[in-house]
Design a protein around this nucleic acid. Structure first.
Lengths: 125, 125
DNA sequence: TCCATTACTCACCCAAATGTAAGTAGAATA
DNA sequence: TATTCTACTTACATTTGGGTGAGTAATGGA
């Protein structure tokens, strides 16, 4: 697999190309939440723990620019903006699902016990 | 999906957990090359363009520690070390293949033409 | 008049990932 | 004696992704 350029960046392989589009800390969580319903900016923010305004808006903009989500602005005050997944985004959700299932398998192999961890976090650790 | 801890790090979801094991710039290229044959350190280095000694050795060590590859040292001078994929590593290759296929699809959608780029690189751009 | 509302942007900062360049062991070979 | 070989390690520099905290527009309501 030879290297190739896209938008002035050099990629070594197709995996890297894919991960540059939908990777990072926040893009998959966003797509995951949009997979079966339209959501407003504020809804997304509430539903994704620890995400900041900066990250949510930059990642949404990236995803929109590359065609994974679409943005609908309503001319109202206070503003209302709705995000919905596109067909390209739906294809992304397919692979996200597969990576997620692989992650769950790995977690089992490594003995990560979600139930126990949830309790640990509840008790303040 | 609640958050969970593994090795003192907080994860938000299984995707993040998986990507922490096999993500980054170099782990997938390494696993990909080991998928169907045993390779020596030097062979790996030659076959992976632009990887440095530092990155190759740290990534191999990570992959070994987490059970994706195994390392066999021969008591010779100069040293000889062979790396081979494990069954856990083979499972990783499965998902890598899927991500790779998704990447190839995305590249088509985005109009990335590998043939053309290969020529551009040959001519020194 | 002041405040709440919503969906942002901006300037600045930090830590982690990655890159650079040099060095090392120990035996064989010139 | 100096050099080559291989598989590394180490110190240091740079890049990159993400976090922090503050500010903003335009309108309705108290």
């Amino acid at each position: 697999m030879p290297e190739f350029l896209y938008k002035s960046k050099l990629y070594y392989n197709p995996v890297e190309f894919a991960m540059d589009r939908i990777g990072g800390t926040w893009k998959m969580p966003i797509l995951w939440r949009l997979k079966d319903r339209v959501m407003r900016y504020g809804e997304l923010k509430k539903s994704i723990p620890r995400i900041t305004d900066k990250m949510l808006s930059t990642q949404l903009r990236d995803l929109e620019l590359e065609g994974f989500v679409s943005r609908q602005v309503f001319a109202e005050v206070p503003p209302r903006v709705e995000y919905r997944i596109t067909s390209r985004g739906k294809r992304a959700v397919t692979i996200i699902t597969e990576i997620r299932n692989y992650g769950l398998l790995l977690m089992k192999e490594f003995g990560v016990d979600q139930q126990r961890i949830r309790e640990i976090r509840k008790s303040g650790d």
